[in-house]
């Protein structure tokens, strides 16, 4: 097995290079003083400065942060509520409901995008921030729900019973006993929802309006035209943010254990 291991190890190292080389290249060249971005000229922070003066990118970032924040709040409410209620009650429709809730997680994004688009059009809702938030919430809340359901599987039913026996109303028991117990799962689900919403392009593409273009939509438009060092700079900031968010969620997971 040693030979296989050595071979696979070397291969894995090569694959890691394949994974990271483009990312490293992207980051390094965000500091390059050249518009074409193929040959290294000299170090500059020019693109980062220009970034703040680029109206479309700044507006896109604002739109993305607004959408992701509202989406996360809605996803927490809907996802935690759904997980708890489906866990708390026993009824035949629980399974189909849970399957349906998970559907947006797996259905191809193009399908989700166009079906929401025809839906909004046929009930005469004009596209904008609300439609983008609705679309994002629909595919983000299952992630909160999944995280919370996993945690509920280990819940001792005596916990709620004790609270009820001691005179708490079902709502008080949920709020003061169950929610604190679920908190780590809610936080990690919420982080995931936030990251996914921030990142989403395809569904957003169909349900956005000109005034509600999120950052990925703006970047997609720019990238279609070719290389733009400002996009490199922005990507670098985003990658940094993603890595931090990931480390944070790992840390939350560890704290839970």
């Amino acid at each position: 097995m040693a030979l296989v291991n050595a071979l696979f190890g070397t291969w894995s190292a090569l694959v890691m290079v394949f994974f990271y080389a483009p990312i490293v290249f992207l980051v390094v060249f965000s500091f390059n003083d050249s518009k074409l971005n193929v040959v290294w000229e000299k170090f500059t922070l020019r693109w980062y400065a220009e970034l703040w003066n680029s109206t479309p990118l700044v507006n896109g970032l604002k739109a993305s942060l607004i959408v992701a924040s509202i989406t996360t709040v809605l996803a927490i409410i809907l996802g935690t509520g759904a997980a708890w209620l489906l866990h708390r009650y026993r009824f035949r429709a629980a399974r189909p409901i849970s399957t349906m809730a998970y559907l947006p997680m797996v259905v191809p994004e193009v399908i989700m995008g166009i079906s929401l688009l025809v839906f909004f059009k046929s009930i005469d809702v004009s596209l904008g921030f609300p439609t983008v938030v609705i679309a994002h919430t629909t595919f983000c809340f299952p992630f909160v729900m999944a995280a919370v359901q996993a945690r509920l599987a280990g819940l001792d039913p005596a916990l709620e019973e004790a609270a009820l026996d001691l005179g708490a109303t079902p709502f008080e028991a949920f709020w003061h006993v169950i929610v604190p117990y679920l908190m780590p799962a809610i936080v990690s689900g919420a982080l995931m929802a936030f990251a996914l919403s921030l990142d989403e392009l395809i569904v957003t593409f169909f349900v956005k309006s000109a005034g509600s273009q999120t950052l990925p939509v703006v970047i997609f438009g720019m990238a279609k035209k070719g290389i733009n060092p400002m996009v490199n700079a922005l990507s670098t900031l985003f990658i940094l943010f993603t890595v931090l968010l990931l480390l944070l969620s790992e840390w939350v997971k560890k704290a839970r254990a």
Binding site: Y20, P22, I23, L26, F29, D199, P216, I219, F238, V243
Partner: peptide, 18 residues
């Protein structure tokens, strides 16, 4: 996990100049 979580859009964009 890091490349898994970095936006596919940015990762694709990274290849353009390469």
């Amino acid at each position: 996990m890091i490349p898994f979580w970095i936006s596919f859009l940015l990762r694709t964009y990274a290849w353009i100049s390469l």
